[in-house]
Design a binder for these strands. Structure first.
Length: 820
RNA sequence: GCCCCCGUAGCCCAAUGGCAGAGGCAAACCCCUUAAAAGGGUUCCAGUGUGGGUUCGAGUCCCACCGGGGGCACCA
């Protein structure tokens, strides 16, 4: 029995510097390296301080997979970098009267130090920071490529504005009417901003998800599908009395066209103002002003009463010539479809609510067997038979839709159409700590991109108070920086003073890792061909429609540019759960925060990592109050003693075939099962198997063949390699005690011997009417017929059975069920 | 309101439609010890949220409901 204590802190102090020398996790790019390649990526961290418990979980989980791949002999790329532009650095800089870079790079160093202690299997040679000019230069270069292709454009319009952060936001960054970052209520402002034309890729973003099925969590795919929101229907042109041009509306229910009893224009659409009857204009303006005062949360609330005003005008239904009144309302959105709708109250609940409020007619055109919506207030949206619809009468909904589209097309008053909820990606931000948009505005030449050879456009040196938000970008105050000569005509011109959304930085960083120092473009196309796409991506579900959608978009554009040969960046995606405490998210106000560094100081890196992995399935939340890092530490101490005692009792290279057979069977069954469990990402169960192996070895040492038995060495060596996925320090120490050279991380994954997996006999359960009545020890290779005979011969079975059984179900060799 | 996921011992979690328990925590007890700690070991505990259905057989599949979590929610 070893009297040595397991001292995690001592092992960390011993092995961390050794690993720095050994550098065991370098990705190899030699053409001669024949090993299959794997690319593992963790969502890179934002340097907001030191690593927290959430980082502790995600990196521990991803590292199990990465280290497993290393052990399996793959050539693994597992890089690390920092998503280091962003608002918190800027706010910290204002508070401290400093430059955002000071806070940012200090935090990066803190996190890098913590990562090294946490022993994640990174290839540190590829480290990048998005706030480095060497990185963001290529954001600008990519922006220029997008601009050339018409995928980056500037337009005016209503945008989402966060009053606290004093910047515009993309639609994806507005969650339930609030700023995704700070939670403030978002308001709408009229601004001219830069956009990426992600809507051009809506169909491909949608269609390609079919290939991600199985590799990505269903809920993320669902969220992206909902976000893109493709719908099919028809555009229908309505004449407006007194207006030359007809107005087009989009509808998913062209079959109900004969049921349109009024027409609604979005109150904030220019069309509403234009077609409003002058006598009604003051009413309209008053209503519009009222709506403008509402926040999006109020405006979009579904239980809010319908509001609107009659515009004093009439639209003409193209199929029956009927005059229907035109209203303005805020339940119609100006930026979806055409900003105007035909209202069919009988078959659309929103239209019905509006019709009831303003006493507009309700006409049923689809007989569904339900009560009259005009009476009940419940619109009928289901299937049925068309009525009151001229040529459509008698058709079903499914038949009527193509028929009416055909009729409209024939008359030139409509056509089939597709619409998306997805809007273009607004990328301008009125903040400092980001990538300057590389555009120069010239009075004569317009929007002129900064020539590639003049990139990067670096940030001017602003700090402290100069960064405080003023509603326009802080860059605007750097007059020397702003005023430049136009690259085209050399005349006086001004730089664009906005910076890019930091989601631009993260949309392609995984490509940069393949050639982090590359100077002739954003990335070396050949290197990306070598490594891409990412085999496994691991990160939080909060990016389901942000980072992940943007990255998919970038990848498709780069594919169209011939720069990458794949169309989806992430083959597999794993969303780890959150670490919570006492049933709630950790927060300062609740006072339930747990500090990762303190946990490591108390229990050691290995125990914290093991706790994260063992707590449950990786996608489940971990309640830190429900798990025990102390227990993990105890297990690791047990494992340590087994390895140390085996190492002290025998030397490497023993003939394992002479070892204790019972223990050897446990070892090889464990190898077999843990391999399958890790392959299927059931890490918590894999850890349980390692615990069982440890117990079996303990028992063999204490009350079996003893520590010197070759099977004990085999068990201990197997344990060391398996543990290296989760608890690298104790695994490395154990490996050394076993007389093996470092690093255990590259020792190679053990292979189960098939001969040790077969069992000599198995217990067969014999049921009568589903109840267990006997157990038989039988050969695993027994035939169904032999087993049936054996079971029917059983005394216990016969006791519970009178007469001949009706049926006997045999599942050799494990089960027989006799139906009396 | 609509859609999705999850309900297994006091707790965290296992169980290709086939004996409900692998592992851990907590608890109790035993061994070791002058004692305690550390260590080694043993034991206790649910019939799977509820009610139906399919099946020879259901924790697992289907339906409804209850409870928890998440997503979407004037997108015509």
């Amino acid at each position: 029995m070893s009297d040595e204590q397991y001292d995690p802190q001592a092992l960390q102090a011993k092995w961390q510097p050794r690993w720095e020398e050994l550098d065991p996790f370098r990705a190899v790019e030699d053409a001669g390296d024949e090993r299959p390649r794997r690319y593992m990526l963790d969502m890179f961290p934002y340097p907001s301080g030191d690593l927290h418990m959430g980082h502790g979980e995600v990196f521990a989980i991803a590292d199990v997979v990465a280290r497993y791949w290393f052990q399996r002999g793959y050539n693994v790329l597992h890089p690390i970098g920092w998503d280091s532009f962003g608002l918190p650095a800027e706010n910290a800089a204002i508070k401290r009267n400093a430059h955002p870079a000071e806070w940012t790079y200090a935090n990066i160093e803190t996190q890098a130090t913590s990562f090294k202690r946490y022993a994640i299997s990174f290839d540190w040679s590829r480290r990048l920071h998005t706030s480095d000019p060497e990185y963001y230069r290529w954001n600008q270069w990519l922006f220029n490529r997008f601009f050339e292709r018409g995928l980056a454009y500037r337009k005016g319009g209503l945008v989402n504005w966060c009053p606290k952060d004093q910047t515009v936001l993309a639609n994806e960054q507005v969650v339930a009417g609030r700023c995704e970052r700070c939670g403030s209520e978002v308001i709408r402002r009229e601004l001219t901003q830069w956009y990426f034309k992600i809507t051009d890729y809506a169909d491909r973003l949608l269609d390609d998800m079919a290939r991600l099925e199985g590799g990505w969590p269903d809920r993320v795919l669902t969220m992206q599908r909902n976000w893109i929101g493709r719908s099919e229907g028809a555009d229908v042109r309505f004449e407006i009395e007194g207006r030359d041009e007809p107005v087009t509306v989009y509808t998913t229910r062209p079959d109900t066209l004969y049921g349109a009893t009024f027409f609604v224009v979005a109150v904030d659409a220019p069309l509403a103002e234009e077609i409003c009857d002058p006598e009604r204009f003051s009413d309209f303006e008053a209503y519009r002003a009222e709506v403008a005062k509402l926040s999006d949360i109020e405006r979009l609330s579904t239980d809010k009463d319908k509001t609107g005003v009659f515009l004093g005008r009439y639209a003409v239904n193209p199929v029956n010539g009927e005059r229907i009144p035109v209203w303005a309302a805020d339940y119609v959105l100006s930026d979806y479809g055409h900003g105007a709708i035909m209202a069919v109250p009988a078959h659309d609940q929103r239209d019905l609510d509006f019709a009831m409020k303003f006493e507009l007619p309700v006409r049923v055109v689809l007989h569904t067997g339900m009560a009259d919506p005009g009476e009940t207030g419940v619109a009928t949206a289901g299937e049925g038979t068309m009525v009151n619809s001229g040529p459509l009468d008698g058709l079903t909904k499914a038949e009527a839709i193509p028929r009416i589209i055909g009729i409209l097309a024939e008359r030139g008053t409509g056509a089939g159409a597709v619409n998306y909820r997805l809007r273009d990606w607004l990328l301008s931000r009125q903040r400092f700590w980001g990538t300057p948009i590389p555009i120069i505005h010239c009075a004569d030449c317009g929007e002129v991109p900064v020539p590639d050879d003049q990139l990067p456009v670096t940030l001017p040196d602003l700090r402290g108070e100069a960064l405080s938000p003023k509603g326009v970008s802080p860059l605007a105050s750097a007059t020397e920086w702003v005023n430049v000569a136009c690259p085209k005509c050399d005349g006086p011109a001004k730089r664009d003073t906005d910076t890019m959304d930091t989601f631009v930085d993260s949309s392609w960083y995984f490509l940069r890792y393949c050639s982090p120092g590359f100077e002739d473009g954003a990335f070396d196309v050949d290197k990306v061909r070598l490594w891409g796409p990412i085999d496994q991506y691991v990160g939080g579900v909060e990016h389901a429609v942000l980072h992940l959608l943007y990255s998919r978009f970038f990848t498709k554009v780069l594919h169209d540019m011939g720069m990458v040969d794949f169309t989806e960046p992430f083959e597999r995606l794993l969303n780890q759960g959150q670490v919570i405490n006492q049933g709630k998210s950790m927060s300062k106000s609740l006072g339930n925060g747990v500090d990762l560094g303190e946990q490591i100081d108390a229990f050691g890196v290995d125990a914290v990592r093991l706790t994260m992995v063992f707590a449950g399935p990786p996608e489940d939340d971990i309640d830190w109050a429900d798990v025990s890092a102390a227990a993990s530490q105890k297990f690791l101490a047990r494992a340590f003693r087994v390895m140390a005692e085996a190492g002290a009792a025998s030397a490497p290279g023993v003939d394992t075939a002479t070892g204790d057979l019972e223990l050897r069977k446990v070892v090889h069954r464990t190898i077999d099962e843990v391999t399958r469990l890790v392959d299927s990402y059931r890490f918590n169960v894999a850890v349980a198997r390692m615990m069982e192996l440890t117990s079996a070895a303990r028992k063999a040492i204490d009350s079996g063949p003893g520590a010197a038995d070759p099977a004990v060495r085999e068990a201990a060596e197997t344990l060391a390699v398996m543990l290296s996925l989760v608890a690298p320090y104790v695994a490395e120490e154990g490996w050394e005690r076993l007389g093996q050279p470092p690093s255990v991380a590259r020792a190679g994954w053990p292979v189960a011997e098939p001969s040790l997996l077969v069992q000599e006999s198995v217990t067969c359960v014999v049921q009568v009417a589903g109840k267990v009545r006997d157990r038989l020890e039988v050969s695993p290779s027994i035939t169904a017929q032999e087993l049936e005979e054996l079971a029917l011969a059983s005394e216990k079975v016969r006791f519970h059975l009178d007469g001949t059984p009706r049926k006997v179900i045999v599942r050799a060799p494990k089960l027989v069920n006799i139906v009396p």
